[in-house]
Amino acid sequence: MDELFDVHTHFMPPRLLRRVWAYFDEQGPLIGRPWPILYRGSDAERVELLRSFGVRHFTALAYAHRPGMAVALNEWTLDFAARTPGCLPSATFFPEPDVLAHVDAAIAAGARVFKVHLQVGGFDPREPMLAPVWDRLAAAAVPVVVHAGSGPVANGFTGPGPFGEVLRRHPGLLAIVAHLGAPEFEGFLDLAGEHPGVHLDTTMVFTEFFGGPPASLLPRIRALGLAGRILLGSDFPNIPYPYTHQIDSLRRLDFGEAWLRAVCWENAARLFGVEKMS
């Protein structure tokens, strides 16, 4: 593919990123297996690597896992996007007092995508103080990337049930479910079928390291991709294999060039209102 739009990449404050890498290096309890991160180096070096792979637009997904983090993270990620061509202004939030004010401030500063991680954050997306946040994101048509699947380790707030209730209460929400909802692929595909604002990203799915859904679900994945609802994601730089392996894994599905082009560029470009670059 000549041009890629990757909706699931991570750029974070250096101190936080070092902690994330240390967690992977130590095979923390949510990892449980060797996970050698392939792409380290400076922010500038990693941006240039993405561009060398053909990535023209990407995100700087950081996620708050406790109270008091979101404001500083948003300041950093929004500043990073402002000085990094091709990076979508990205933000996060956590259920805490003034969370709606934090989200409003990020949107006013230009945030075009949010990220929440229900597994790492360990919070219930149905938390009442988040209800006005989901409404605000829906009204502003700002998508949110949600790690809602139970992989690699479930907690009481992962799986299609809790986030499915959020979608039913806030039907206009634009959501991008990370990792195709692994391992509850079928449940999240069902949610995508029920809610037109639900998208799924391909992050790590179908790679040799990660695997993918059963073959019986592939026709639904093909149809959703052509319908604009599946987007390319990678988890760069926190991946243990070459970036291009994700693209090769999607190509091996043999869904055709139209599907691959839709997933790797057109669907995200349409969702975020981005024009083709060449």
Rank of each mutant, 00 (worst) to 15 (best):
His65Ile: 12
Met129His: 02
Arg168Met: 12
Phe236Gln: 05
Arg252Asp: 12
Leu218Trp: 14
Thr244Val: 06
Arg229Val: 10
Gly156Met: 01
Ala70Phe: 03
Thr92Glu: 12
Asp248Tyr: 11
Leu224Lys: 09
Leu78Thr: 13
Leu16Thr: 01
Pro214Glu: 12
His199Asp: 07
Tyr23Ser: 08
Tyr39Val: 06
Glu96Ser: 03
Lys115Gly: 13
Arg220Pro: 10
Val205Asp: 13
Phe272Tyr: 11
Phe58Val: 03
Gly110Ala: 09
Thr244Gln: 08
Phe188Ala: 04
Phe53Cys: 10
Phe157Asn: 03
Val205Ile: 15
Pro214Ala: 11
Phe272Lys: 07
Trp134Cys: 08
Leu231Val: 15
Leu167Ser: 12
Phe11Tyr: 14
Leu173Ser: 08
Arg51Val: 05
Thr207Ile: 12
Pro162Lys: 01
Gly181Ile: 03
Phe24Asp: 01
Gly212Tyr: 03
Glu26Ser: 15
Phe236His: 08
Leu224Glu: 11
Phe206Gly: 02
Gly273Ala: 10
Pro95His: 09
Thr84Ala: 00
Arg136Thr: 13
Pro97Leu: 10
Thr92Ser: 15
Arg66Pro: 01
His195Pro: 15
Glu257Cys: 08
Gly228Asp: 06
Met204Phe: 05
Gly54Ala: 05
Ala192Tyr: 03
Ser234Cys: 13
Val47Tyr: 05
Trp35Glu: 09
Asp254Lys: 11
His102Gly: 04
Arg220Ala: 14
Leu16His: 00
Leu49Ala: 08
Asn155Thr: 14
Val166Gln: 06
Val177Phe: 03
Val133Leu: 13
Arg66Phe: 05
Leu49Lys: 09
Leu100Tyr: 00
Pro85Gly: 05
Phe206Tyr: 04
Leu226Ser: 07
Pro171Glu: 04
Phe123Leu: 02
Val144Ala: 06
Arg33Met: 14
Ala101Gly: 11
Phe53Arg: 11
Pro97Thr: 13
Ser234Thr: 15
Ala227Trp: 07
Ala175Tyr: 02
Val274Lys: 15
Ser150Trp: 01
Cys264Val: 10
Trp134Gln: 04
Ala227Leu: 07
Gly161Lys: 09
Gly212Val: 09
Leu167Ala: 10
Asp25Thr: 01
Ala44Pro: 08
Phe210Tyr: 14
His10Arg: 02
His195Asp: 12
Leu38Ala: 12
Pro14Asn: 10
Gly256Asp: 08
Ile247Gly: 10
His147Lys: 02
Arg229Thr: 11
Glu186His: 08
Ala215Trp: 03
Gly211His: 05
Val7Pro: 08
Gly161Trp: 06
Leu49Tyr: 11
Leu260Ser: 14
Leu250Val: 10
His147Glu: 05
Val177Glu: 02
Leu200Asn: 05
Phe209Met: 12
Lys115Ile: 11
Ala91Asn: 13
Ala227Asp: 14
Met204Arg: 04
Ala268His: 00
Glu194Asp: 14
Ile239Trp: 03
Leu260Tyr: 13
Tyr241Trp: 11
Leu50Ala: 02
Ala108Asn: 04
Gly212Trp: 01
Asn238Gly: 02
Gly181Val: 05
Tyr63Val: 00
Arg66Gln: 06
Pro132Ile: 02
Ala192Arg: 11
Pro95Lys: 10
Asp2Met: 00
Asp135Ser: 15
Val7Ala: 07
Thr244Phe: 04
Ala101Trp: 00
Leu217Lys: 01
Gly256Phe: 08
Ala106His: 06
Leu226Gly: 08
Gly110Asn: 09
Arg46Asp: 00
His65Lys: 04
Asp98Phe: 01
